[in-house]
Structures are given as structure tokens and as C-alpha cells.
Amino acid sequence: MNKGLFITATGTDVGKTFVTALIVKKLRDHGIHAGYYKAALSGAQKTGKSLVPGDAKYVCDISGIKDDPQNLVSFIYETAVSPHLAAKIENHPVDKSIILRDFDRLKFKYEYICVEGSGGIICPLRIDTQTIMLTDIIKMLQLDIIIIASSCLGTINETVLTVEYAKKLGINIKGIILNSFNKENFLHVDNKKQIESLTGVSVIGCVAQHACDLDMDLTILTDIFKEV
């Protein structure tokens, strides 16, 4: 039985890759054969003639995945802009059939597969003769999501909007994880309380800045994954 989960965020640079790496590491540390996949990545670093997908490499390095990071991302762009624009600049448009093919390959290779989104939940992957949004990929892969959010000022607005947008599209939300959380910070503590109250979605985890492990019960973590 293989299981999957889509990990999105309230925006860029809130720590989505960092938390994803900790999730995969937690599973693997407990003997679960967990893997990683990302449909599209922009801002890859060029090494020789190859493009290194930084997010995938980071997750592999932290979690101990031995796969080549290039095998874990379907569309890799060097230009550090939104994937739809990078695809246009580099003349390499996203193709949903390739994403589905690669996801199917990896979901059977790994017992649990963490699929990381690009940017926030409203991220265009292709806008030309057709429009492909990140949410189209979530629905195509038939995955539930968790939302990574900041703990800081402004997160209530960003998180509530993200939750409401996902709900409007019929996407099932399994929980919210607050990143860079400080339990001694009254603002962070109140943000957690208000987010749960306003969204009706549980904050299932709080990750401290520079955390080395995910402080979450393994059963809670595995329960948010959906059979794929």
C-alpha cells in the first residue's frame, strides 16, 4: 500500500522545502521507505552541463534519500522566476502527462511519497496555449494537502486566504504546520490559536527555527497521508 501527501504553502520562502525535508527524514528515521517528488522547479543551479534542482537535493541530503535529485523533479528551470515564466523563457513548457508519469513511477518506488509544490498554492506552471495551475496538479494526482505557514506577523491573513482558496476548489486539507515557531513568543502562540479558530483546520505541527527533527507523533504524521 503506497501513500502520498501534497505539501504546499502560504507563499514563497516560508520554509516549505525545509519542513518537507523534516517530514521525509522523520518517516525514514522510523524505517518507512519515504520519497520525494516535485513537478516543477525554477532557479536551479548550473553545474557543468547539468541543472541541479536545489530543493530536491536539500531534501535528499537531509533525509538520506539516495536517489539522484534530477530524477525527482519533472521540469527543472535555471531562470529564478515563477515556473510558467521560466518555462516560456527556456521554451520547455510543463506537460501534465509527464508529471503524472513521473509521479506514478515514484509512488510505486516509495512507500510514502511527499510531493512538494512550487511557491504558494496559487502558482501558475504554464500559461500559453493552455493554463496549468499548481492546484490542477494537486487535483490530477488526487492528493490531500498540508499547508506550511509562517509563525510571524501577517500569517493569519495569508493562511486564512490559502485555506479558503483550497476549500473553494474542493481540495482536502489535512492540517497546517507553522514554521519558525517559538513557543515563548506570545505572537506566535496567538497566531496558532487564531488560525485554528478562523479556518477550522488544525495546526498539526510547529517547527522551531533551525530544527533538526520534526516534533510530531509518528501516528499523526502517517495518518495525514492518503492511499495513492
Rank of each mutant, 00 (worst) to 15 (best):
V59R: 09
V59K: 13
C60I: 14
C60R: 14
C60Y: 14
D61I: 06
D61W: 10
I62P: 06
I62R: 10
S63I: 13
G64T: 07
I65C: 09
K66G: 02
D68W: 09
P69G: 13
Q70W: 03
V73K: 10
V73W: 12
V73C: 07
S74H: 01
F75P: 00
E78W: 14
A80F: 03
P83K: 03
L85F: 04
L85W: 02
A86C: 04
A86L: 07
A86H: 03
A86Y: 04
E90F: 05
P93S: 05
P93C: 04
V94R: 02
S97K: 13
I99L: 07
F103A: 07
D104F: 06
R105Y: 09
R105E: 10
K107V: 15
K107Q: 11
F108G: 04
F108C: 06
K109A: 04
Y110Q: 10
V115L: 10
G117R: 09
G119H: 13
G119V: 12
G120M: 08
C123G: 04
P124E: 02
L125T: 01
I127M: 00
D128W: 00
Q130A: 05
T131Y: 00
I132R: 06
I132N: 05
M133G: 01
L134V: 01
T135V: 11
T135I: 10
D136A: 03
I137K: 04
I137N: 05
I138Y: 05
K139A: 02
M140K: 06
M140T: 11
M140A: 09
L141S: 07
L141M: 08
L143A: 05
L143T: 08
L143E: 08
I145T: 15
I145S: 11
I147H: 11
I147V: 15
I148V: 15
S150V: 03
L153R: 03
G154W: 09
T155Q: 07
E158S: 13
T159L: 12
V160C: 13
V163M: 10
Y165H: 15
A166H: 13
A166R: 13
K167W: 13
L169M: 11
L169N: 02
